[in-house]
Amino acid sequence: MLQRTVSYKTLLRIVSACFLLYGLYLVVVVLTSQVSSRGSIQYDGPWVVEDPNAVMSYLFSGGLFFGTPVLPGNLYMFGLFTPNPLFWVGIGILALSMTSKRVWAIYVSLQLALWMVSVSLWFPIATLGGTTNYDPGVFAPSALVTLAISFVLLAFYKPVIRFLRKFSESNNIATIA
């Protein structure tokens, strides 16, 4: 009987490509969505021009922000727990880098994914607290937590690189039945 095998790297590349494409798809859909409003002021055109704060709250909060209106095309796949597009892109970048043999690239993408995924957490927390101002200074207290985690990763650079080197040198193969 012929046994087929596929490496975990191939599976991880496929999954990471799906995450990346889905995140980029959400960004493109939201930035190019059209809206038509009829009322005292009539408007037909891009949603990003009509309500840039709603577009920004979706791009940075996803469905975690209770005030985000229903998006065109109903992009709330998981309801209230829909992560933002940067979450999917960050996970995709991290998963794609795990298939690389370059340890430094894995470490850099780990830092990048940390920041992209943390935006999914601290932006909604700040906006749920009643913030309507989207200046970077408003999010500084929560960003300090991410900065501290990033510095911890930097402080433990050598042990993290050793762990990542062991991880990248392993050659696991999964069997397909």
Score class of each variant (00 low, 15 high):
2 L>V: 08
4 R>W: 13
7 S>T: 15
7 S>P: 01
17 A>F: 12
18 C>R: 01
18 C>L: 15
19 F>V: 03
21 L>Y: 12
22 Y>F: 15
22 Y>V: 09
22 Y>A: 03
24 L>H: 04
27 V>D: 09
28 V>D: 02
29 V>D: 07
31 L>T: 14
31 L>E: 08
31 L>W: 10
32 T>I: 07
33 S>R: 01
34 Q>H: 05
34 Q>L: 11
34 Q>C: 06
35 V>L: 00
36 S>E: 10
36 S>C: 07
37 S>I: 14
37 S>E: 14
38 R>I: 09
41 I>S: 13
42 Q>I: 14
45 G>F: 00
46 P>E: 14
47 W>F: 04
48 V>D: 06
49 V>L: 06
49 V>R: 04
51 D>P: 01
53 N>V: 12
53 N>P: 06
54 A>H: 11
54 A>C: 15
56 M>V: 03
57 S>I: 02
60 F>A: 04
61 S>C: 13
63 G>V: 05
67 G>Y: 09
68 T>S: 06
69 P>I: 08
72 P>V: 08
73 G>A: 10
73 G>I: 06
74 N>S: 15
78 F>D: 05
78 F>C: 05
80 L>E: 09
80 L>D: 13
81 F>C: 05
81 F>E: 10
84 N>C: 00
85 P>N: 12
88 W>C: 01
88 W>G: 00
89 V>E: 02
90 G>N: 07
90 G>P: 01
90 G>M: 00
91 I>M: 12
91 I>G: 04
92 G>H: 00
93 I>T: 05
94 L>H: 06
96 L>V: 05
96 L>C: 03
97 S>M: 02
98 M>H: 01
99 T>L: 02
100 S>T: 14
101 K>G: 01
103 V>C: 00
104 W>M: 15
104 W>I: 09
105 A>C: 07
107 Y>A: 00
109 S>D: 09
111 Q>I: 07
112 L>D: 02
115 W>D: 01
117 V>N: 09
117 V>S: 03
117 V>Y: 02
118 S>F: 13
119 V>L: 03
123 F>H: 08
126 A>L: 13
126 A>M: 11
127 T>D: 11
128 L>Y: 12
128 L>D: 10
132 T>H: 12
133 N>E: 12
133 N>R: 05
134 Y>G: 06
135 D>C: 09
137 G>C: 09
138 V>P: 00
143 A>Y: 01
145 V>P: 05
145 V>S: 01
147 L>F: 15
147 L>D: 02
148 A>H: 10
149 I>N: 05
150 S>A: 10
152 V>F: 13
152 V>W: 15
153 L>A: 05
153 L>K: 05
153 L>V: 02
153 L>Q: 03
156 F>H: 14
159 P>T: 07
161 I>Q: 08
161 I>A: 14
163 F>S: 06
163 F>V: 13
165 R>I: 05
165 R>G: 08
166 K>A: 14
168 S>R: 08
168 S>F: 06
169 E>L: 15
169 E>H: 15
169 E>T: 12
170 S>H: 15
170 S>C: 13
170 S>N: 15
171 N>T: 15
171 N>I: 14
172 N>I: 15
174 A>P: 03
174 A>G: 11
174 A>Q: 10
176 I>F: 10
